[in-house]
């Protein structure tokens, strides 16, 4: 028997059970305005998925992508298309009850995975030209791809075009979002501690040396794009099914930029840094909403603050809060390495 598989399945089950427990707990907590906090918590989760997945491309493989919002849009629209036009009508034919509930969860998972899959396909397409491009050229091309994707969606009337798609079924919730938070963190963590992850790092550090060591740099760059955009697509799917509304304007390159700020702030290449930065920035973002209201500002101060954070960060601590290390390594260092 393959006991490693058993262990992982067990792990996922335990995580799921904990998450289900937590989501009931969140529902029962007698805190006024709990619905609002719930929404913030879910937003944080979606941002964590975005940041950790972008970190695979930008932080680990060192390919500066500015098109993450594009992949997110692909995932969001693909999964919403499936649930809105196919799964929802099908579920409506079923009798209400546990069977329908279970079917809804299964179909939602399928839609999310399909969204991730198509986003991964888009990532593969974008990854291909990146074979020949480095640094800032790649940045501008990925940005361009993101914009092309958005313009394409604007022109597809079936999924709402510029009007947006209202009435996406409300399938996403705390459980699904944090299940994928756990999955993306575990996948990213395991990858980086494997030969695949080390190949990503080698590409980031020195492409010529990596190639000389037999690392097919092309292959790994594309692979990083595919894995990263898969999870961006999942994040998009979760977002759409949580907000029950989609609009191409949600995926402008300011969205990619938000993800970049998270990765850079946390420290490019640090998974825990990406998680930390996603939490900090999402909370700061909510706080800034109050600032905007309190001062009666007409413009959103959020992007200005992001910009200043980014500029100061490059000046004072260009490696980000955690650098390319993980949170654990700081504690280990303190305990001494005298041996």
């Amino acid at each position: 028997m393959r006991n490693w598989l058993v262990r992982d399945v067990l792990g996922i089950t335990v995580i799921s059970a904990i998450l289900i427990g937590l989501s009931y707990l969140l529902g029962w907590l007698p805190i006024p305005g709990m619905a609002y906090y719930n929404r913030v918590i879910v937003t944080i989760g979606i941002n964590i998925i975005l940041a950790v997945s972008l970190n695979i491309i930008n932080g680990h493989a060192g390919q500066f992508s500015m098109g993450h919002a594009g992949f997110m849009a692909v995932g969001a629209y693909t999964s919403a298309y499936l649930t809105y036009f196919h799964f929802q009508p099908f579920l409506a034919t079923m009798k209400e009850g546990p069977a329908q509930f279970a079917m809804q969860q299964v179909l939602f998972l399928a839609a999310l995975l399909a969204g991730g899959g198509i986003a991964a396909l888009a990532g593969w397409l974008v990854g291909l030209p990146s074979l020949r491009l480095r640094g800032d050229y790649l940045a501008i091309v990925t940005l361009g791809f993101g914009e092309i994707i958005r313009v394409l969606i604007l022109n597809i009337d079936k999924i709402g075009g510029a009007r947006g798609l209202a009435g996406v079924p409300a399938f996403a919730n705390f459980f699904w979002v944090y299940l994928f938070v756990c999955i993306v963190v575990i996948v990213s963590w395991r990858l980086i501690r494997s030969q695949v992850g080390r190949a990503f790092l080698a590409v980031r550090e020195d492409e010529i040396a990596a190639e000389a060591m037999g690392v097919n740099t092309t292959h790994y760059k594309v692979q990083a794009f595919v894995i990263g955009s898969f999870f961006a697509g999942i994040a998009g799917g979760l977002l759409g099914h949580y907000l029950v509304y989609l609009n191409p304007g949600m995926f402008q390159f300011t969205k990619s930029f938000e993800a970049i700020v998270m990765v850079v702030l946390g420290g490019m290449g640090s998974i825990s840094g990406a998680v930390l930065a996603a939490v900090i920035l999402s909370v700061a973002l909510e706080a800034l909403r109050f600032v905007k209201e309190a001062f009666g500002l007409t413009a959103d101060p959020r992007m200005v603050i992001y910009a200043i954070v980014l500029i100061l960060l490059m000046r004072l601590r260009p490696q980000g809060v955690l650098g390319n290390r993980e949170i654990g390594s700081f504690f280990r260092r303190r305990n001494g390495r005298s041996e």
Partner: peptide
């Protein structure tokens, strides 16, 4: 370990699932 890259033949799926091969 990156130097030995060409001799470690497992896929990203093996890495993610921590398979025996991995």
């Amino acid at each position: 370990r990156i130097g030995g890259h060409i001799h470690y033949k497992y896929s990203w799926a093996d890495s993610v699932l921590h398979s025996v091969k991995f």
